[in-house]
Design a protein around this nucleic acid. Structure first.
Lengths: 279, 279
DNA sequence: TATTATAGTTCAATAATATTGAACTTTGGA
DNA sequence: TCCAAAGTTCAATATTATTGAACTATAATA
């Protein structure tokens, strides 16, 4: 049984005759006969009675008709549902680094939700040590993260959304305290912090590792130590003066990137999200 | 898009891989690739992301999956519904002559209904002058009727269920009144009545045409005239003595027949009905 | 870091099947 | 009685589905 035979069957019933159906569908009449013979063989019973030159549905044919119609209707519907995905919809799972999630994405997500309400958006925090794995397994469709500017792993397609800088901040601009508050090792910019410290000859300074950017920031505010953080995380406190840049400190370049698996199909939802990101 | 491709698609998702699906379905792996390429072409979007050696459903694929499953499930269901028609069901329309409908069929219908409750049985009265037409148009699936024993029209398959006789009845057995109560001309046994009258030299006797057997019987009972009727219509009144056979009258042979179009497929319901009829 | 095994793709050859036209059958009207 | 219309059959042909072999890319392993 194949869809084409079901379509033939339905057309015969609609137009009341093999010949008309053949004309409608662009087949030779004998093809119509063949289609129906196949169907009847598969079903094991005749579906038409050949009463004189009239074709009349048998009881089996009558029972089968609604099934055939439903199947063909579903077929058409499925095509439409997939093809006419003008309006992004369905699930979209984005992995984001914790800091971006807090300081940058909320407004973006809000805009995206307003524009594409049919997309079921899920945000997940990413594991920096297994980004490729997460993208490959389909755990997340794309990732947004802060990385060094040379970020470009094979297997992934990356895209720089925005450049930013790591800035050395402290509660009191005059001093560079002995304690450096840092993120964990798997954090993407942690190597840059280490490089910076080496650059200023402070590679042996004591470090306190804290689990989140927000924890580090609050601790810096209390004077517990200082830290290298992306500017977008500290902008507001710089303006208010609660945090200040260490004098003569060097800034390190970082970028906000999107990343996805290179073979991944970019769905309409995904494209929409990337567009909102870039605007 | 063909059913076979949908089955392949579903199997791939279930077994998680082209190779396993190929094994399961008895295809070469390249056939699986071809199936999915066809599907993707028809839908206009990829349905799998080739992430490394893992095949992961795309968003479009995820949306398509439930459609595919529903279509394949319907396909299986339809086959089952048609093939496993062990239990007769569906519509069955029987045409019957008015007399049989009244005196013979009620108990048969009752038995049939008890045995096959799923069949929606419809009884229609037949037009004797257009029996073939009714059978051909699908107005009725089969007819049950009283006919002369040589009843055997081309185009129809007939079957003698039971022999019966036309019996010349009257309210007073001693006399044969001047008035003959007869059915209309299109009635199947009317010619036999005419033949009988000719046989007994009464071909010019006066006739009153009445529209139904029941009307004739009641009229005979009142002494309005006499009539030739099938025994099954008058049995009870013969036993009670209210109707009596005319002395030395000849009986005419008739039969109760089923008739259906010769090309008509005998559905399980129909077969069941015929079996009940013959028991 | 090679090496190997695994999973999927490509492509040309082949097997399978769908379609067709021509001749035939049956039926319903002129 | 003959003709036209509708469907069937069947052999020829066109199309398509399937396959095996060579190839690519990736994951595992040694």
């Amino acid at each position: 049984m194949e869809l084409r035979q079901l379509i033939t069957f339905i057309t015969i019933v609609e137009l009341d005759g093999y010949k008309k159906a053949a004309g409608e569908l662009g087949y030779a009449q004998s093809s119509i006969t063949a289609h129906m013979k196949d169907l009847e063989q598969e079903l094991g019973t005749p579906i038409f009675d050949r009463l004189g030159r009239k074709m009349v549905l048998t009881e089996a044919g009558k029972k089968f008709l609604p099934y055939a119609e439903k199947i063909v209707r579903l077929y058409a519907k499925s095509k439409e549902a997939i093809q006419n995905t003008t309006e992004p919809s369905g699930q979209l799972t984005i992995g984001a680094s914790e800091s971006l999630m807090i300081y940058w994405l909320p407004t973006i997500i809000k805009r995206f939700r307003e524009k594409y309400p049919l997309v079921e958006l899920t945000m997940k925090s990413i594991q920096y040590d297994n980004l490729t794995g997460q993208l490959k397994k389909g755990d997340i469709d794309a990732a947004i993260l802060v990385e060094t500017l040379n970020f470009n792993p094979t297997e992934l397609v990356t895209n720089l959304i925005k450049k930013d800088e790591l800035i050395h901040v402290t509660a009191d601009a005059a001093i560079m305290p002995d304690t450096m508050l840092v993120t964990e090792y798997t954090c993407s910019w942690r190597p840059l912090v280490e490089e910076y410290l080496k650059g200023v000859g402070k590679e042996f300074i004591s470090r306190v590792e804290l689990p989140s950017v927000e924890a580090i920031k609050q601790s810096v505010l209390c004077g517990l130590g200082n830290a290298m953080l992306p500017t977008f995380t500290v902008e507001n406190f710089m303006k208010s003066g609660d945090l200040q840049e260490v004098h003569n400190s060097k800034r390190e370049q970082v970028g906000i990137f999107t990343a996805m698996h290179k073979n991944k199909w970019v769905s309409p939802s995904m494209r929409a999200f990337l567009e909102v990101l870039e605007s």
